[in-house]
Design a protein around this nucleic acid. Sequence first.
DNA 1: AATGAATGAGCTTTCATTCAT
DNA 2: GATGAATGAAAGCTCATTCAT
Lengths: 211, 211, 211, 211
Amino acid sequence: MNKTRQKLILATERLLRRDGLARVTTRKIAREAGVAEGALYHHFGDKAELLYAVVQQSMGDFREVLEILPLQVGQRTVRENLEHTLQAAFDFQFKVVPIVCSLYADQPLLARTREILNERGVGPQCSVAALAVYLQAEQRLGRVVADIEPQSAARLLLASGFHAAMFDHFLAREVTPAAARQRIQETVRTLLTGLEPRIAVENPSVPMTGS
Amino acid sequence: MNKTRQKLILATERLLRRDGLARVTTRKIAREAGVAEGALYHHFGDKAELLYAVVQQSMGDFREVLEILPLQVGQRTVRENLEHTLQAAFDFQFKVVPIVCSLYADQPLLARTREILNERGVGPQCSVAALAVYLQAEQRLGRVVADIEPQSAARLLLASGFHAAMFDHFLAREVTPAAARQRIQETVRTLLTGLEPRIAVENPSVPMTGS
Amino acid sequence: MNKTRQKLILATERLLRRDGLARVTTRKIAREAGVAEGALYHHFGDKAELLYAVVQQSMGDFREVLEILPLQVGQRTVRENLEHTLQAAFDFQFKVVPIVCSLYADQPLLARTREILNERGVGPQCSVAALAVYLQAEQRLGRVVADIEPQSAARLLLASGFHAAMFDHFLAREVTPAAARQRIQETVRTLLTGLEPRIAVENPSVPMTGS
Amino acid sequence: MNKTRQKLILATERLLRRDGLARVTTRKIAREAGVAEGALYHHFGDKAELLYAVVQQSMGDFREVLEILPLQVGQRTVRENLEHTLQAAFDFQFKVVPIVCSLYADQPLLARTREILNERGVGPQCSVAALAVYLQAEQRLGRVVADIEPQSAARLLLASGFHAAMFDHFLAREVTPAAARQRIQETVRTLLTGLEPRIAVENPSVPMTGS
DNA sequence: AATGAATGAGCTTTCATTCAT
DNA sequence: GATGAATGAAAGCTCATTCAT
């Protein structure tokens, strides 16, 4: 049901990755989707709305992961929870880089986007906040050290994913899921460990990394 | 020297920063540079070549940020060195965000940029690598724990700066130097500390975090 | 009777009046009529046929304004009869200005309208002719000077009404009935008086203006 | 010089008369003018500005006639002056009917036009005012009766011209200059004479009609 | 070298019309 | 008869590029 709409979203995402927003025309989208150009305007008010739908859809899994994050507090290990979250984040970020970055190629469009996101109370700060809330909860359980700023940690983790996605697009290389996974594991491990020479607590009341 | 050529490059850079790639037309460039539209084609084969010239120039100082880094190994504290480096990186990143991101709106242009940067032996991987080399050296001195991946840590730090720069542009807000400085300090502290509950070594052979 | 057909015609007339022909789309018509877009094509061959139907209907009362006129010959005063006629004409003219003028944006549509009006034996020439016939009759009674062209006088009067209606629409101002009335009175008085310096006849056989 | 601009204006006027504004596209104008579509946008900001230029140009003669009207006061005969003025007015009105009427097919466009004209302090009321001022001056000289409203007379005369122009367009007939001239003469004579039975003054101090 | 008018392909968007349900 | 998603031609307008001066 609503096949045409789906075809348009998928075609747009494909072209965005391949050519970049500046080269993606409504004509090309319609052809790639195998529908008439006018159909695009039946399902979306304009090109911008179609792009917004692509973002929404790409967000899909990631949003769910963020929503259930509060339920993971105290469950499994912090490491596993962060890895799982970053995995979903990266999938979203990789899809969304060609759109998000393109906004910066058009200041007025960027401004309009800011307003739209503000109105709906969404935006990049939300995922950071959700992750920070999770870390804070783990701090209370003693599974995360008390003397770090959860906000900073959340920013570091998500920024690293976005940066990696931009880098992969820059190299125009297909990232194998395995490689992405390993990068995420290393990132999480590095942040968990920290750079300062220290000695781990001998008997943390709650097991920390894996069972 | 070639005055018109320089005027065109500078005008383009200014417009790129102010309006974004999508809003920069040859007409606007010519007007901003104070020359005729046709003159552009005396000095550059086409618009793309002019853009390449701008990208080359803008990316030029990528290096400088990191050239001093090797000299800091073992000097002052790791914390201070990282903060200082991130400060310089952020200034640069904030400046280039509108240009770098604009490239992602146009795959062919992005590909061409990759080649330019490769030829000149610069690019995002270089700064990460330089920072990683520094961290590795500090690992040898015992000022950074041995069991983390320097590459990962470097990526985390630089990604955080770029992400912050994008965010500041998105909000179109003036960031006070003080606020930027505090953000960087928190970020560095978080990464130095790490999230895992641990006990710091009692007598690190080399003092770790400032006096 | 055919309900959908009537709903379409009425909706079109309303929209024509409110937005003007250029802004009236089949989609808007369908929505305004509360039917599906496709339904329009069950009742009319195409959009143009629907418009013809509206024009036919709108122009319908053109007649009525002037049918009563022959009965007024020799009654009351010429001034009163003209004022009364112009008042009725203006009400009609004000109503049809948006429709009539819209036709001039589309020659083929205007041509088709000409044919419709010809078939029905109505049209702008009819009202002029009817008024001219009235004036001619008054000439025979000596209530109007013999040496003017009734046709010219009729044209002047009706043109003035249409022009005023266009002007009121242009200013998008509500004309109070009182203001419209005064404008008409002045117009009639001016035409009755004439511009040439003259001396009124001393004893016109028939009283001329008012009691 | 500025040949292209002239070609565009003339082509637009020709097409407007033949097809009506709704059928006149920038593509057709460019083809009719024998230039590229883009050239239109070199010389005019948009389609509306081109139309405005057509109006301005059509106004040409008429404006001059209006401007020298004050100098005609007391010269020749009132009849001749009015005929000459109406002749110029009609030429203008005939050219401008397809544009002016088309505005009524698009309410927002009509509103925007109103604002533009207001800003520039021009508009239909100006020609009426100019003619009224002339008539008032002639009233002072006794060449026009004192007890009529000059405004009303001016409106009658100009409305009659516009109405005639609309009518000629409605019939899509070429009006011979001779026919137009005769119509104007009749109109002027009718208004000069007035409808009320009267006796002309025996020795007007200033000769009234012809030498 | 420099100019800027001219070009024309291509953009986003609209809309009368069709047709399977 | 009625529906409304789909069509695709065509609209106004932009802009990189050319070329006579």
